[in-house]
Design a protein around this nucleic acid. Sequence first.
DNA 1: GTTTCAATATGTATCAAGTACACAATTAGA
DNA 2: TCTAATTGTGTACTTGATACATATTGAAAC
Lengths: 240, 240
Amino acid sequence: MQELAKPNINTTPVDLMPDFQFALSVDCVIFGYDEGVLKVLLIESDLPAYKGQWSLLGDLLRPDEDLEEASYRVLLERTGLTDMFLEQVKTFGSVHRHPAGRVITTAYLALVNVKDYQLKKKDNALQWKPVSEVQTMAFDHRLILDTCLAVLQRKIQEEPIIFSLLEKKFSLRDLQHVFEQILGMEFDRRNFRKKLFTTGLLTDENEMEQQVRHRPGRLYSFNRKAYEQIKRKTFVGLQF
Amino acid sequence: MQELAKPNINTTPVDLMPDFQFALSVDCVIFGYDEGVLKVLLIESDLPAYKGQWSLLGDLLRPDEDLEEASYRVLLERTGLTDMFLEQVKTFGSVHRHPAGRVITTAYLALVNVKDYQLKKKDNALQWKPVSEVQTMAFDHRLILDTCLAVLQRKIQEEPIIFSLLEKKFSLRDLQHVFEQILGMEFDRRNFRKKLFTTGLLTDENEMEQQVRHRPGRLYSFNRKAYEQIKRKTFVGLQF
DNA sequence: GTTTCAATATGTATCAAGTACACAATTAGA
DNA sequence: TCTAATTGTGTACTTGATACATATTGAAAC
C-alpha cells in the first residue's frame, strides 16, 4: 500500500491545528412560487470579482454551530420564516471557488411560501428572480442553482414536498401549475386530478376560491397525517 | 431584518483568516458484494476515544485539493482501484463529531468489485465486513453508513449502478441476488428476468457459468452504450 | 338580465406495465 | 442412472397510465 503522507484522522491521534486551513459556508437555494412562476431568492454581490452579479443567500459557518443550524439561521435571518422545507443537497469544494480564499460551501434546498415571506420581510437588497430569467451568477452559484433545481425536479416526483410552495389551501389548478412550472411539461388535467385524488393526500376543505373571474375551484389542503401513514409502506421496484 | 454579525461572505469582501477554524475530511463508504453478501470496507481506529472500533476509510482534505479529488485519492490509496462508481452523498457537520477538534466530513458512496480489489490489494488493517454484522462504529460513522446504505437502496432502483458491484460477466442469479441483498426483499425470478431483458441493458455474452454444481446459467454484461442512449429520454411522472 | 368569457368538474375506453404462478431441461456428483 | 440444485420459459390477471369532449359555474360586460 502507498504510504499516507501523515497520520490518518480516522485511525490515529492527530494535532489538527495545521489543518485549519479552510472556511466553511452554507448557501441556500430558496425557491418560491409566485404569480404562476417559479422564483429563487437572490442577493446582489458587492465583491470586486462579482460586482453586481446575483448570489445565493449564504453565510460562514460559525465554529460553535452545526451545519444544519447554519442553514436554518440563514433562512431565518433572510426570510423570517422558521417552518419551511429545508434539506442538504451537495457540498461544493473546488479549490478556487471563492476569490477570498479556500471556502467550501454546502448547498441547501429550501421551499417557502412566498405569501408568508411577504408578510414578514421587506429587504430591498433581496429579490425573487424567476428561475427561467437567471443568467450568470457570482462564484459557482449557477452550478449550485442548477444542481438544486435538478434535485427539486426529482424530489417533487418522489415525495409530496411541493405543498411547501403553496398556501395552506390551494386549488388543483395551482397545484398542477406548480408541477408544470418545475418540471417544464404539461399534464392532462383530468388524469392529474384522478392521480392526485387516488394518492389520498388531499383534504377537501369544502371551500371555494374567492375573487377569481371565472368559475371558482374547490380548495384542498395537504393531509400530512395520511402521508406519514402511507409512506411506511415503502414501495420497492426497479424503474431504471 | 436582523443584522448579520459580520460582513457576509457572498456580498462583501472579507478577511477569511479568522474563519479558518475548521478541518475537512472525506469518508468513503465502500460497498462490495462478496460470496452472496453485501459488505463494506472498514478499518480499525486507534484513537483513544474509539480504540478498536470500526471506522470508514477517510482522510483530511488537503489545502490544494478539490473535494472530489480527495475522495478519489482515498479510494486509490486504500483499494488501488481507479475505475469505480463514486458519488458524493452528504456532509456531516455536527460540532463535536470528532474528538480532536472541529472536523466536517463529506461522505462518498463507492461501489467496487471485490474480486478486482483482491487482485490488487492486501492490507491486514482493512476488512470487508458484512453490512448486516456491523454494530457500533467510531465517530458518527454508523450514521454515515446508514445514510449511504439508504441512498444505495434508492439509487439502484433508479440507475443501473449495481453492475459496479459485479464482475464484467455475471449470471442473472447473481444480479438478482445483489438486488435482493441490498433491498432486503425477494423478487420473482421469471418477472425479474423479463424486466431486466426489456430494459435492453444486458448483453448476452454467449457464455456459461463454470464450476457450478447445477445447471449453469448464461452470462451477461452491462451494455453501457445502450444505457447512455436510453437515459436521454428522461421519464417524468408522479410517483409518490 | 342576457351574453360572453374563462375555467371547473367529470367518465370511459385503450394500452402498457406489474404480478402471480408451474413445469421441463441441464449439469455435477453420488 | 439417479438425485440435487438451479436454469429457462409463457400466460392470465390486475393495476396504473394515457387519451380524449361536454356540460356547468360565477363574474364581468353590455
